[in-house]
Amino acid sequence: MKKIIICEHIEKSFGEGNEKRNVLDGVSVEINEGEFVSIMGPSGSGKSTLMYAVSGMDSIDSGKVSFEGKNLSTLREKELADIRRTEMGFVFQQPTMLKNLNILDNIILPSIRDNRKSATKITEKARVLMEKVGIGELEKRDITQVSGGQLQRAGICRALISNPKIIFGDEPTGALNSKSAQEIMDIISEINTEGTAVMLVTHDAKIAARTERILFMCDGKIVSEMRFKKYNGSDIDDRMKKVTAKMRELGI
């Protein structure tokens, strides 16, 4: 299977002198095309920092991060921004939306800003995506007129607008109730089934259990890994038992 991301011996620290702390301590990991990966670990273990390093959103002190054969550390900021905008998608716990724009305009703004000639096509695609995730009737709503789950669906549409090779999610269900969280995971799982790789940071065993590979982190290192088959909707309880048992074993 084709590897789209290869990380080799990544080091990342914060602070200086006696306050200096290694957040990533020689981490190596590979992500395959179409793979569904989650990262778990206690607070401060480095899981979000790893995702930001892997996606080129944050610099590293040493090591190498390659995306589609390109060494992200050697690229200029504009080149990095182009890759993030056209080949990666991002879904965060709290979607960042502009209050003076409606839902549709918030979805299309980043893409139209860089490609005004394709505004009509981008808008058409946004509407297709909105219908797909169940918010097609909300395009004219302000962001204060929708629920958290609906806003997160809009964030997913924005992440998908450029047909990315991989979606990164930092606790994408963390601010949602259980019903909305399940619905968002259903959407993300469908995206993955259609061929887009996904990497999620989560503290929720039920969310991680729906992925096919879980990386467990502690003190800046990947200390264990668990693999599953693609989730088919029928074995979540068994998968959760295995995940929680591993978490207890690792003290997470």
Rank of each mutant, 00 (worst) to 15 (best):
K2V: 03
K2H: 01
I4D: 02
C7Q: 03
E16T: 11
D25G: 02
G26P: 03
E33C: 13
S38F: 10
S38D: 14
T49C: 05
K64I: 07
V65S: 00
T74V: 02
L75T: 10
M88A: 08
G89L: 11
G89V: 01
M97D: 06
N102A: 02
N102Q: 08
N106D: 15
P110E: 11
P110C: 10
R116S: 09
R116P: 15
T123G: 02
K125P: 10
R127T: 15
V128E: 08
V128Y: 08
M130C: 12
K132W: 14
G136D: 12
G136E: 09
G136C: 04
E139Y: 15
K140T: 15
K140R: 07
R141D: 15
V146Y: 01
V146Q: 08
G148H: 11
Q150G: 14
L151C: 12
R153K: 12
L160H: 06
I161V: 07
S162W: 05
P164V: 05
K165V: 01
F168L: 04
F168W: 06
L176F: 06
S178R: 10
K179E: 07
D186K: 09
S189H: 01
T193Q: 09
T196F: 05
T196Q: 08
V201W: 08
A209C: 13
A209I: 01
A209Y: 06
L215N: 00
D219E: 13
I222F: 01
V223T: 12
K242Q: 14
K246E: 14
R248I: 14
E249V: 12
